[in-house]
Design a protein around this nucleic acid. Structure first.
Lengths: 380, 380
DNA sequence: CATAATCCTGAATACGTATGTGGCCAACTT
DNA sequence: AAGTTGGCCACATACGTATTCAGGATTATG
């Protein structure tokens, strides 16, 4: 096998024929370019350079605000660029500079690959993330995938994005394996989730323990003593487990012993919340309040209670978590622990950008906020 | 001014010195490349070529399934590429081939640039569009902007995307100007909205007239005779106007004369629906049913009616439009006209792709579907 | 067996930008 | 006035892939 077959470059060291010049010989002295139709061909930095009487590199530098270009030259170039409606070619720019000014958002929800049932909480987050990206001058690539797909490994390798934001619920064991893979690759990424030590990558999340504590404290303050929790508390959904833990600690502080019979598993869907409430009722244990692991669970539970003839809040007070848009539209409007979408999205984007720029990053927990609506009331 | 200053290419036609070869002289015969650290450097098609004993173009062809590459060669190349975890560089690929395999989604909502109040209908659409893009092998760039921004003109010019999907409500006059600008530029785009003749570009939308007719027919079938409409009917929001027109035609067919006093303006928010219902009550005109221009309007109206002591559906039946997730969670669950998100997203993406591929495209209207829940009931 | 058709591959090069380096000129130093 | 500094800019080139063209090898054809 000849060792020159895979050589880079056209001539492999042989002298170049004098009749061949590299790079667009037809554009010599600008004549070739001007023969082309300006209406169909987007202008390039060479076109701008030609009109401005400068070289192409000067155009590139001027448009990016490089201080080595004089003010007068820059102004002139900017004017011509605007006039010709010139836009920097993103692909060429990224190819040369090795960064894309684009972030990727991976949105996964393993148990529910159904279009319409995307958790509203994450959709609100998406809005916030998209807006923050725009403010920072970054584009956002969005993808909805199964957690088990290989989507995440592609994005940096193929230079589509400079970093990845991970958003979603899913089985935490699968999730963790993916995170470790990303970290091993050296991919820049941040995730939204339960903040715990010893996890791969950087996590931004709500202070779920404190949120759970606040929810319980609110109910206890209303005179409730038998507080049920609806939501999975296994290691597969760390957020819900954290919320439960916070709730328990508030109860213990108030001298209430958390009763395992008052906890029923549910995942974050309305249907699952409905089922969990039915299960709770079936057990026949007394309760005067429900802390639901999420708003969707709470809304499902309220439907079950209504069907069972229980009144919210006079028979049972309910607190949710997330403050999704539907929470204020439910009947009655739901008392809940709000997460600040705007801050959360900004924190995710800014942390990722710091990581991309090789600045120090650290996990962060955002404070939740109790929003009292009409699903909770003092005990009679 | 010398006329060679802006010339393309390094030598401006002079004979090339024999000692200089274009393109990576240090990579001659592969030696330069192999000196670099493989762990930090992503492999290129040259690396694959070297290991496979073929040239770089053959690698490029093989990985894109070009039939001129023999099966044996392709298999070998694919194996090596997989082993080295090689990924085609998106920027280089797009730069050379002049297409990006990326679509852009522009999401605007002019009156409400607020993060949290994004219309849930569009968020559901986003999920469907993202999923369809993934199925078609396209990436999706997402942006939330004001309609008045210049976002849309950038995307094709800077070669970030091959086409644009426009989604959102907003003042139709501003909107139309933007559409004309896009068309003049020759940008590939489709929009979701009211399908009308003589509009710039290609529009995909729900058959709003038929939806309005179905909603009214349903109410008439329940014995309602005084049907109010909540929603703007001006040319600024053509969808709502279409829905109203459909409602009126159903009433006329049933021998009912639409009463202008039974129409109150509202935009697509819960708050606006609430206000419109208050306004309707204030007028003191009798009505036995409400057709709301959207689910959010309907939910706001239900809140107003509850506060006014009116029972839904025994005092007044209500029909919404869109079937957003919250519609089934409201109290009572909302009868509404459903739009098929999955089909809508697929239609938008596929129409845009046809346009990009220079195939024939045409506007399309998707059939709506009446979903009866508990906010409507036969008149006593 | 010569010639044509076919198949496969390599050589050469373009895509449009960003950036390291060197050089020219004017404004300064001693 | 000779040397020195910055300020600005042009030159040369790399980034990694896709594509056109031409040619070698193989097979089909007469």
């Amino acid at each position: 096998m000849p060792d020159t077959r895979y050589a880079r470059g056209p001539y492999r060291g042989a002298a170049l024929p004098a009749t061949l010049a590299p790079n667009r010989p037809q554009a010599m002295a600008g004549s070739g370019r001007s023969r082309r139709a300006m209406l169909t061909d987007k202008p390039t930095s060479f076109d701008i350079a030609q009109r401005a009487g400068v070289s192409q590199p000067t155009v590139s530098r001027a448009l990016r605000g490089d201080p080595t270009v004089s003010e007068a030259t820059r102004k002139r170039i900017e004017a011509i660029a605007a006039q010709l409606n010139y836009k920097v070619d993103k692909n060429a720019s990224s190819l040369r500079s090795r960064h894309t000014n684009t972030l990727a958002l991976l949105f996964f929800e393993d148990p529910t690959p159904d279009d319409s049932l995307i958790n509203p909480f994450f959709l609100s987050m998406l809005g916030s993330i998209a807006r923050t990206c725009a403010l920072r001058g970054y584009d956002l690539l969005t993808s909805f995938q199964q957690l088990s797909s290989n989507w995440h490994v592609d994005y940096e390798d193929s230079h589509k994005a400079d970093g990845i934001i991970l958003l979603g619920y899913g089985d935490y064991e699968t999730y963790r394996a993916r995170l470790e893979q990303l970290e091993a690759q050296g991919t820049h990424f941040v995730r939204w989730g339960s903040v715990q030590t010893g996890q791969p990558g950087t996590t931004i999340g709500c202070d779920n323990v404190r949120g759970g504590r606040d929810a319980s404290a609110h109910l206890i303050g209303l005179g409730c003593r038998r507080i049920a929790f609806l939501g999975q508390v296994s290691s597969h959904s760390p957020e819900l487990a954290d919320r439960y833990r916070g709730a328990c600690s508030a109860m213990l502080e108030a001298g209430i012993d958390p009763d395992p019979a008052l906890q029923a598993d549910a995942i974050t869907t309305e249907a699952s919340g409905y089922e969990a409430a039915i299960e709770l009722l079936r057990r026949g244990v007394a309760f005067d309040a429900v802390f639901a692991g999420s708003d969707l669970i709470a809304i499902g539970a309220m439907r079950a209670f209504e069907e069972a003839g229980l009144d919210v809040p006079s028979d049972v007070s309910i607190v949710g978590f997330d403050d999704i848009p539907a929470a204020s539209l439910s009947h009655p409007p739901l008392t809940t622990i709000a997460q600040d979408y705007a801050k959360a999205g900004a924190a995710l984007v800014d942390t990722l950008l710091r990581q991309i720029r090789a600045q120090s990053v650290e996990a962060a927990m955002l404070p939740p906020r109790l929003v009292v609506r009409r699903s909770t009331a003092p005990r009679a």
